[in-house]
Nucleic acid binder design. Structure first.
Length: 588
DNA sequence: ACTAGGAGCGCG
DNA sequence: AAAGCGCGCTCCTAGT
């Protein structure tokens, strides 16, 4: 008996639930004639160990929706790359379906990557956005209702929350099935519109590049990183204790909740502390900088409590919880197009504190392996030197010594002081980010007048930097708010904020340099060694002699950008990832 | 009960 | 004329 198909709100689009043997035969037959399929999965949730509940395959007119547990053969063929596919965020579906996402991703186009390359702005940023819903609204018109919106409504009717809905809704609930199938079909229709646009816009090379990068990073997600559970639990307890003690002490001063800025401000004012800064919404500002400038026990205790609480709740607890459910490993989720500049972002494990090395100390290599971290040194400044064609800065790098010292000697002569070196360093970073004298004086503590002098000096010593920025700003103004990077990425610039282009293009170029290194490392056979990426740093583990391994990897990652040498540096961990940061503490 | 935005803090 | 950039996560607060 065939299960009747379901109608959908999308013109002429139907959905076939696959529930009986007859349904399965019909699906098998359909698959024989289809050459290109949209794929989507519905999972219990977003965690690494959440299981796939439904798989949807579609062409632009119909979708087939099946339970992967009852159709293991088809799932196997998908995972082995036997069908040409398109998904919206292929990484997610590939990781949900397979422990080894490589083969699937090799044959799977990705409309999310296409969308990001065509317009990297989020909806909040004034762009089209990268979710299936906003993209369908924009490219397919109003009739194209995506699954999420309708499902939310359905969950409400059933008295379910979003989280519990995806996990608990009846597998064959009509709305669930219809909109699941619809999403796969919409992905196909979106692909039919976006793929030609990618070609027309000359973005095909970078699209294939991004797909390759996403494949490599999905591999890292799947591999995961081993967790030292004993250490994690021990650290959790220590942090809990630190937090509790500070909370107890500060409550004597009337602060019941250290995370309430209002309470903190009130307690400080009551003690006669003078607060001077306010936030945008007119409340007293009591952030780290403000609290650090105060010599007051409340300020200190609040900070202690907050930082211990943050470390405990944001980092150690999630690591321990995930490892507990996933055979002692954490699986970072890497968004290869995390930022509009093309930079990657990593959910949960990117911003682990470095100062408190107990946190990174939770992450350890597999048995018999050593962790090796390799990062690019001052890569963005180098990229800026290259893009601006600033000879003097390039020479500073070619000299091969400490570049900030080279810059300082250009500004202050050879007998510059350590303070002047720091100032030079802050100034070049300020240049990179487009800071003014006000900001520079805030970050360095020198007067605004002095900051201005430093910046003028920098401009005199490296004249091409300023000329390059103003040319870029003009370009952005006359180019419809978009500029192109050397790798062909299109970067949007908000009107009135054109000064940001210098940072955007530098960050984007550095990101592509880094992604290029990932591809080279993969080609050279080092993919299995890669565990994690952090902007311009790769964490490897190796069974080889770590020194030799590091040398080989550095060789691959190093190179040059025009005349600018690009250098990578390695640090070898004695034990955990955290052990790399212990030396920082001894310096303090 | 849930959501959105602000504030704050972590990373490069 | 001047403008520090890009992220993710948690907690609080106010609004629905």
């Amino acid at each position: 008996m065939r299960t009747p198909h379901l109608e959908t709100p999308l013109d002429g689009f139907i959905v076939h639930p696959v529930r009986t043997d007859a349904d399965r035969y019909a699906l098998e037959e359909w698959l024989q004639y289809e050459t290109f399929l949209g794929i989507d999965t519905e999972t219990e949730g977003l965690a690494y160990d959440d299981e796939v509940r439904l798989v949807q395959l579609a062409n632009k007119n119909e979708a087939w929706v099946f339970d992967p547990k009852e159709n293991a053969g088809i799932v196997q063929e998908i995972v082995l790359g036997h069908y040409d596919l398109v998904a919206h965020n292929a990484t997610f579906d590939a990781l949900a379906l397979a422990k080894d996402p490589e083969k699937l991703m090799t044959v799977c186009e990705d409309t999310q990557i296409m969308a990001h390359l065509l317009d990297p702005r989020t909806t909040q940023d004034g762009g089209i956005g990268h979710g299936l819903k906003p993209l369908c609204d924009h490219y397919l018109g109003a009739g194209a209702i995506d699954g999420q919106t309708a499902l939310k409504q359905r969950f409400k009717e059933l008295g379910l929350t979003i989280a519990s809905g995806f996990r608990n809704i009846d597998l064959w609930d009509d709305t669930y099935v219809v909109y699941g199938g619809l999403d796969a079909g919409l992905t196909v229709r979106l692909h039919d519109i976006l793929a030609p646009k990618i070609k027309e816009s000359g973005l095909n090379n970078i699209y294939e590049f991004e797909r390759h990068v996403s494949r490599i990073c999905a591999g890292m997600s799947a591999r995961g990183i081993k967790v030292d559970m004993d250490h994690a639990i021990e650290t959790y307890k220590e942090l809990e204790d630190e937090e509790l003690q500070a909370v107890r002490k500060v409550s004597i001063y009337g602060v019941e909740n250290v995370n309430s800025t209002a309470q903190v401000a009130e307690a400080l004012l009551a003690r006669g502390v003078e607060l001077t800064e306010k936030t945008n919404s007119g409340k007293w500002k009591v952030d780290k900088t403000v609290l650090n400038s105060l010599d007051d026990p409340v300020a200190e205790l609040v900070q202690q409590a907050k930082s211990a609480g943050k470390a405990k709740e944001s980092w150690v607890k999630p690591i321990a919880q995930e490892a507990f459910r996933n055979e002692g490993r954490v699986h970072p989720r890497i968004k290869t197009l995390g930022a509009k500049t093309g930079r990657m972002s990593v959910e949960r494990f990117q911003q682990l504190p470095t100062a408190d090395y107990r946190i990174r100390g939770c992450l350890i290599p597999d048995e018999g392996h050593t962790l090796v971290a390799v990062d690019y040194s001052q890569v963005e400044v180098r990229v800026m030197a290259y893009l601006a064609g600033e000879r003097n800065l390039i020479e500073a790098f070619e000299a091969g010594e400490d570049v900030h010292s080279s810059i300082a000697s250009r500004l202050y002569g050879d007998d510059f002081s350590p303070e002047q070196r720091s100032l030079a360093k802050a100034a070049i970073f300020g240049k990179l980010y487009g800071a003014g004298p006000k900001k520079l004086s805030e970050t360095t503590g020198v007067s605004q007048n002095q900051a201005k002098k430093v910046m003028n000096g920098l401009n005199r010593s490296f004249p091409r930097l300023s000329r390059w920025s103003s040319t870029l700003v003009d370009k952005a103004r006359f180019n419809g708010g978009f500029i192109n990077t050397p790798t062909g990425r299109r970067l949007p610039v908000v009107r009135g904020y054109e000064y940001k282009v210098t940072n955007f293009i530098t960050q984007a170029t550095a990101a592509d340099l880094f992604k290029g290194a990932l591809v080279e490392l993969s080609d050279a056979g080092y993919e299995e060694n890669m565990l994690m990426v952090v902007h311009d740093e790769i964490i490897f583990q190796t069974q080889e002699d770590p020194e030799e391994f590091a040398a080989k990897v550095i060789e691959i990652m190093s190179g040059s950008l025009g005349d600018v040498p690009i250098e990578a540096e390695a640090t070898i961990a004695e034990s955990s990832w955290g052990s790399l940061y212990k030396k920082d503490l001894s310096l303090v």
